[in-house]
């Protein structure tokens, strides 16, 4: 323990590594399933859960995962993805849940560092944050290890997957749950809003010409790890906030191939 206490950067560094690998891998599944809008929705929906959990004396992460999942389920039950109203309904619930979260914080009389929740505060991360990241990592690994074939089939041909006996709704619920878990676990690293960058940018680089979902996930994770570590080092050297630094590097990494 004294080693860790003397090296305060160690826990943030391990969280950076785990988040850098986990978020892009999850993002690859979501982008290939055309569910990226769900990430935005869930990330905005975690705030009321965090606030309510704090008020009730429960761990905020549990409340965040539940309210993220709840927002996703409400949105999916109000519309279906083929409907032209889909995006409008998703964005309405997204804004409504965020607004609800901001409203109840003063009403419940609790103190939340909103800036840290939304944009991350990696350098002050503790063991609890690390544990949350590892749990999310394990849940994702279990989903992919035991459900890889189903994830591929549903992403490629949802109707065919359903006809072959796969419970598509259950798999989508499992994906929403894992997404909520990944977003909440990344709260300390990049914050629930900026996590979208780490979920999507490395995936765009990793998906290019990949011949399977597995290879795409591995490549995305590699790019995500590089981006996260670079952001971590730069924030230490130049005394920057790591979450926004990682997000800016994500944009820059998209532009680099265009400059060639």
């Amino acid at each position: 323990m004294s080693f860790i206490n003397n090296n305060w950067w160690l826990v943030p560094l391990i969280i950076t590594i785990f988040s850098g690998i986990l978020c892009p891998a999850m993002g690859t599944v979501l982008i290939t399933h055309k569910r990226l809008l769900q990430v935005n929705l869930i990330s905005h929906c975690v705030l009321p859960g965090l606030a309510l959990a704090l008020a009730l004396g429960i761990h905020p992460s549990i409340g965040g995962v539940i309210s993220g999942l709840l927002g996703s389920v409400i949105a999916e039950s109000l519309t279906n993805r083929k409907s032209e109203n889909y995006e409008a309904v998703m964005n309405t619930i997204l804004a409504g849940m965020l607004g609800f979260g901001v409203l109840i914080i003063p009403l419940l009389g609790i103190r939340i560092d909103l800036e840290a929740v939304l944009f991350g505060d990696l350098l002050t991360a503790n063991f609890g944050d690390l544990l949350r990241t590892i749990i999310a990592f394990l849940v994702f690994m279990i989903l992919i290890t035991f459900g890889y074939e189903k994830v591929v089939y549903v992403g490629l041909d949802p109707e065919g997957a359903s006809a072959s006996g796969i419970n598509v709704s259950l798999l989508n619920l499992a994906l929403s749950f894992t997404t909520a878990l990944v977003i909440v676990s990344s709260m300390s690293a990049v914050g629930v809003i900026l996590v979208i960058a780490l979920l999507s940018t490395p995936t765009l680089l990793g998906l290019n010409k990949a011949h399977s979902l597995r290879i795409a996930m591995m490549r995305s994770s590699f790019f995500g790890l590089c981006i996260s570590l670079l952001g971590f080092v730069l924030s230490l050297v130049f005394n920057l906030s790591p979450g926004p630094a990682i997000s800016v590097i994500c944009v820059a990494s998209l532009l680099i191939p265009k400059l060639r």
Binding site: T32, K34, G155, L156, D157, A210, H211, S212, I215
Partner: peptide, 10 residues
Amino acid sequence: SSMNWKFPIT
């Protein structure tokens, strides 16, 4: 139209 042709698969 029901297929996701962009999915990374051989």
